[in-house]
């Protein structure tokens, strides 16, 4: 279930990034790649489960859905922290240029 939720989040983030691709001030590209990275890795995990002959390949329980939501939230949190770091760095660079 978390594979499906993360892949959906990746698709939504990609759609937003594509809409703002010429002026990506929010660095949505990083968020897209983060979600796609996780979705691809879980896809490989799924294929490995199929090869191993596991019966339940996609866990559709509430616990798995919650994990998917938490994964999306973690991705958003990392992206927000990256945004904050970048904006601070840009501000400090701008002030150092102005002082010279």
């Amino acid at each position: 279930m978390y594979l499906i939720i993360t892949a959906l989040a990746a698709a939504v983030a990609t759609a937003f990034w594509y809409k703002n691709r010429l002026n990506d001030k929010l660095h949505l590209g990083a968020l897209c790649l983060m979600y796609w990275g996780a979705a691809l890795m879980w896809l490989v995990d799924c294929v490995a489960a199929i090869i191993a002959g596991e019966e339940e390949i996609i866990d559709t329980s509430l616990n798995a859905a919650l994990l998917g939501i938490c994964s999306v939230a973690l991705g958003l949190a990392i992206w927000l922290i990256l945004l904050l770091i970048r904006s601070r760095r840009n501000k400090s660079q701008a002030t150092s240029i102005n002082s010279h």
């Binding site: 993360t6 790649l33 990275g37 996780a38 691809l40 890795m41 973690l74 991705g75 990392i78």
Partner: peptide, 9 residues
Amino acid sequence: NLLWGGSAL
């Protein structure tokens, strides 16, 4: 971004 993000999740 693909690798760090994927590994974190």
